[in-house]
Design a protein around this nucleic acid. Sequence first.
DNA 1: CAAATAGTGTCTCTAAGACAATATCAC
DNA 2: GTGATATTGTCTTAGAGACACTATTTG
Lengths: 271, 271
Amino acid sequence: MDTEKEFLSNYHIEDYERPSVTADVAAFMIRTEDKTSYRKNPENKLLLLLIRRGAHPFRDMWALPGGFLQKGETVEECALREIEEETTVKPVSIMPVGVFSEPERDPRGWIISNAYASVISEESVKQTGCDDAADAQWFAVSFTCSEDGNYHLTLEYEDIRLEAVLAAEKTCFGRTSFRILESGGLAFDHAAIIAAALSALREEAKNYDAVFDFLPETFTLTAMQKVQETIMNVSILPANFRRMVSAYVEETDEYVRGEGHRPARLYKRKK
Amino acid sequence: MDTEKEFLSNYHIEDYERPSVTADVAAFMIRTEDKTSYRKNPENKLLLLLIRRGAHPFRDMWALPGGFLQKGETVEECALREIEEETTVKPVSIMPVGVFSEPERDPRGWIISNAYASVISEESVKQTGCDDAADAQWFAVSFTCSEDGNYHLTLEYEDIRLEAVLAAEKTCFGRTSFRILESGGLAFDHAAIIAAALSALREEAKNYDAVFDFLPETFTLTAMQKVQETIMNVSILPANFRRMVSAYVEETDEYVRGEGHRPARLYKRKK
DNA sequence: CAAATAGTGTCTCTAAGACAATATCAC
DNA sequence: GTGATATTGTCTTAGAGACACTATTTG
């Protein structure tokens, strides 16, 4: 076995035991709610796509969309494919969140998951109207840190309410990993994946990357601020927000009129 | 197939095609060089462990230590195991860097790599004296961004000099991914993994987490500053560095004497 | 006009960069 | 004393939080 060619022809990769590999995706959307008065600006709601499992294990429980890695694609491509299959919508962006490989995480066997967070634009979902599948629903997200240091993840859709509790383990490289204290009825270790994805999304929103992903081409600064506040679960003074984002946006000559108050200038992302 | 138990007993995971999964580790160490004068403080050098491949493919080329994921372990445990097997040293810390899953990245077949960066303490390497294997060497690292925006990675050990050139692709979530323009004689896509690991290490050094990993229990602030400067490839004014880290360290009553100049107080990491 | 949002100016506080000045040891 | 590092003080600038104020529209 002297040349590389000979070596490779004698190399049988099937001789080694291998895990199954999946990509699971936390797909986020921000929905603009209806105005409560002709004057007021609408509120935003952060939503996460969950699938009701039709098969064992965890049948009838809610889980992240995902599926097995296929030959010839990268795990990122697999994540994109899975989310497109489920929503018929192409995500605006997708970012890696972590690898979940605890041996006992899936009762079917040795299955490791590559977790991604992705951003879906409200526009594209409205256009395709992919809201009809009963087994796929957008859940309203709440993710807060309580006094005892644990994180509470609440997902709500109509009368369904999933409440998970997580402990922030150690933080590595800006990202936090979470240990599930209560799964809240979510399948597998998906509560931990969702927490990590939200944590990643918030990190990515600090430099407004994730914020722009949720917004259309042009937008008002108030709309942008509301997206930022929705993702980060904070409130910001308008004057300060405007100053902070001024380097990231540029003016257009367009205005939004007919809102019952002073028209707002439309901006677009700079460069 | 009605109950979960029945489902699982009929579920044959082997029916699906699966990739091989590896963990590859960029293990970093900072070596304190000899003093050039009895007065002067020693310089630091950032080192990376590379293995000369004894088998095809890429035989005789240099590669990151790594190996296949085994049943019953997480990918992080696999990374730790691989680096311990190679150095007989337990890393101080390990952090995920990314998943590399391009279908063509390994000529042996469908193999995806989970990349990690890890920090090895100089002390532990000195103790075990694991420096004798000719096929495993610590290479001096240089990683800089040139005017044209490309990154130059240079690894040197005695008369061996590996020079890779990389383009910073898109940046996602604070981390950058790299595309290899010239591999510089590194095996597989390891030049891109090393660049991503260095990028992650620098990110982690911003809040001094990675810096403490390289330091012993107690240390002088000048030693800490030199580690920070070595990792980040910058130089900092001592007065400013001291102010910036003051919240992260606490004084001890110990001093380092006999260095040919004013003794320096020893500090330890706070909390 | 009233209600609501759009947008600007500015005070303060803090953090970081630059740099000057002092302190202390081994030889 | 000399050479080197250790350590402190302070000037300046940039950025963010707080808040007051003005501008503009629709019903």
